[in-house]
Design a protein around this nucleic acid. Structure first.
Lengths: 132, 132
DNA sequence: CTTGATCCTCCAGTCATTGGAGGATGTAGG
DNA sequence: CCTACATCCTCCAATGACTGGAGGATCAAG
C-alpha cells in the first residue's frame, strides 16, 4: 500500500500548522483521520489532496462554510455543476466589491496623507481629516 | 452647561452599538465616562467628537492600536506631526498591498468561474482549479 | 538507554465587536 | 401613584479562523 502520512507530513507538504489541521478535523472540513494503535492520526494521498484544496480555497478567501459546500459538492459528482459555479461567482462578486471599497478608502487615505504640511500635530490636517 | 449625553445618544449619533462604546472604554479608546448618581455614563461634546474620530478611523481600516496612537498624538499637540503622517502612510501602503493581492485573486477567480462548462460536478473544471 | 522530535488532548488567547441574561433606573401615559 | 416600557448597568459567552502553550505519551536514532 501507499505510504501513510503523519500529521506533520501533511503540515509540511501544505504549509499548514499542525494545530490547524486538527482544527479542520474538529470543524468537519477534514475527515476524521484513522489512528495508529498509539492514537496518532494517519493520512493518505486523498487527505493530502483535500487539505490542499482547503488551503487553496482559503487563500482565495472562501470562508470555511463555502469550502464545506464545495467539498460536499465535490464528494457527489452526479450533482449539477450550477451550485459550484454559483458559489464561485458569488465569491467573485464579493471580491470585486471589496476591491471597490478599498479603492475608495485608498483615495481618502491619500488625501489625508498629503494633507500634512509638516510641523506640529496641532497644525497637522491629518487629525482633522480623520475626525471629519 | 452644555447638554449631557447618555450612552444611547452617543450610539445614535455615531451609528455605534451601545455595547461597543462600553467596549471602547474598556480598552481605553474612550475616556472613562463620568457617571450620574445612579451610575449611568454621561458624555459631553468632546466625547462625541472622540467617538466620531474612532469610528471614522475604524471605517478607514485603522486597527485599534493605531487609533490609540493617533489619539495619543492628538492629545499632545506639541509633538511633531511626523508620527501621525507615518501611521497614515504605513496604513496607506497596507491598503495598496491589500488591493494588489485582491486584484490577483480576482483574476484567478474569474478564470476559475469561466472554466465551468456546465453539466455535472464530475466534469466541472472549477473543482480542479480550486484543488490545484 | 537517553535524547530530542513528534504526537496527543485540552484550554486560553487573538481581534473587534455583538448579543444576551438578569437586574436597576428613568420616563410617560392613564 | 402605578404601571409599562425604554434605557441603563455588569458580567459572560460567542463569533471566525486560527495560533500557541501546558503537560504528558510515544517514536526513531545514536
Amino acid at each position: 500500500m501507499s505510504k501513510m502520512l503523519m500529521i506533520g507530513d501533511l503540515a509540511a507538504a501544505t504549509g499548514t500548522k499542525v494545530n490547524t489541521i486538527r482544527f479542520y478535523e474538529e470543524i468537519g472540513l477534514m475527515r476524521r483521520a484513522a489512528r495508529t494503535q498509539s492514537g496518532r492520526r494517519t493520512y493518505g494521498a486523498g487527505d493530502l489532496e483535500r487539505l490542499r484544496f482547503i488551503r487553496h480555497a482559503r487563500k482565495l478567501g472562501f470562508e470555511t462554510q463555502e469550502i464545506r459546500s464545495l467539498l460536499a459538492l465535490g464528494d457527489d459528482p452526479e450533482r449539477p455543476c450550477d451550485e459550484v459555479t454559483q458559489i464561485a461567482v458569488r465569491h467573485l462578486d464579493d471580491v470585486n466589491e471589496k476591491i471597490a471599497r478599498l479603492a475608495l478608502l485608498r483615495d481618502e487615505l491619500e488625501q489625508i496623507a498629503r494633507s500634512c504640511a509638516g510641523g506640529l500635530v496641532s497644525e497637522c490636517r491629518i487629525m482633522d481629516s480623520l475626525g471629519a
